[in-house]
Nucleic acid binder design. Structure first.
Lengths: 156, 156
DNA sequence: GTCCCTATACTCGGATAGCAAGTGTCCGAGTATAGGCGG
DNA sequence: CCGCCTATACTCGGACACTTGCTATCCGAGTATAGGGAC
């Protein structure tokens, strides 16, 4: 079990987009160039972010991507869910109903293992929900300023 | 991202093994039969549990698997780590150092995104660490008693 | 009757194929821009 | 000089190969047991 590599890319991209001045947009290939990752593949993940409503796309020249709402209103869970999908980490397949275990019979309530795993998963999601892209940007420090400079040069 | 299906099997198997009387052991094919899963594939996961020290194996006739320590001393994290491996969910590939982002330069501290994701992962692990296989067994209720009955019949 | 030996059958353990999902890439549809032309 | 039109180039979006890891399986190594034979 390992998170999609695109999750890291998407988070970094959101942090960069949060530094965009005003209504400007940044093309996918610029984001790929900035991070040194395959442009076409990064585009795939940006599409996921767009479909989830985290970022919005602008077509044509001077187009690209920008955040669809303030960075402080985008949680890390929003980004992770957009890229990884909404399916839970742990999926209970109800194996207790397959073999002789079912004969025992009284599986009324939900599976205790399913409950325990979901509880842990909710702890993970809660930790992602309390952190926003804005929080990340605030912690960037000098790296953030350097990024702003690079953006100014690119946007011309 | 989805947890290995073997995680669910391993947890159910540990719950069953916790109900074993005294020093008895239960063969892998019995566990597979009980849960209605492929025997050979389940064996693979039991090997992982054995290698991690969660269960111990007994060779020869009357052999099989049993818990290596009391059920209350086996956390869900122990089981999950044994099956999934110790690698973190989120692996930072330090993409900030690849492109022009590196030129900006001052990436002294650890990556803020890596820190945020690891924080959430620790919340998940903590939730798994406070729950033990013994806790699961206590919550089984009637299903647990039915399992004990089945075990008695099988062990003969 | 008791002890020892041997053959047996049962167990785990690692090495081996098949498949789905993640990884990586490409080309086509749509649009705002920029330049040229006419009034 | 100003407004309109057209061609352009740039953007996103979805459809197409490739690789890694999960899924599933098999056969061989090792061992406690059970039975038979000797004492």
């Amino acid at each position: 079990m390992r998170t999609n590599e695109g999750v890291e890319w998407a988070l970094h991209c959101c942090a960069v987009l949060a530094l965009l001045p005003g209504p400007a947009a940044l093309p996918a290939h610029r984001l790929a160039e900035f991070h040194g990752v395959p442009p076409a593949y990064l585009a795939k993940h940006l599409q996921l972010l767009s479909r989830a409503g985290v970022v919005e796309s602008v077509s044509g020249p001077r187009g690209g991507y920008r955040l669809s709402r303030p960075a402080g209103a985008i949680t890390l869970l929003d980004v992770v869910t957009a890229v990884e999908g909404a399916e839970p980490l742990f999926r209970c397949t109800e194996i207790r109903r397959r073999g002789p275990a079912a004969a025992g019979g009284s599986y009324r309530g939900s599976c205790v293992i399913d409950r325990a795993m979901r509880h842990a998963e909710q702890a993970w999601q809660s930790a992602l929900r309390v952190q926003t892209v804005g929080d990340l940007v605030d912690q960037l420090g000098g790296t953030g300023e350097a990024t702003v400079g690079w953006l100014a040069g690119v946007l011309g």
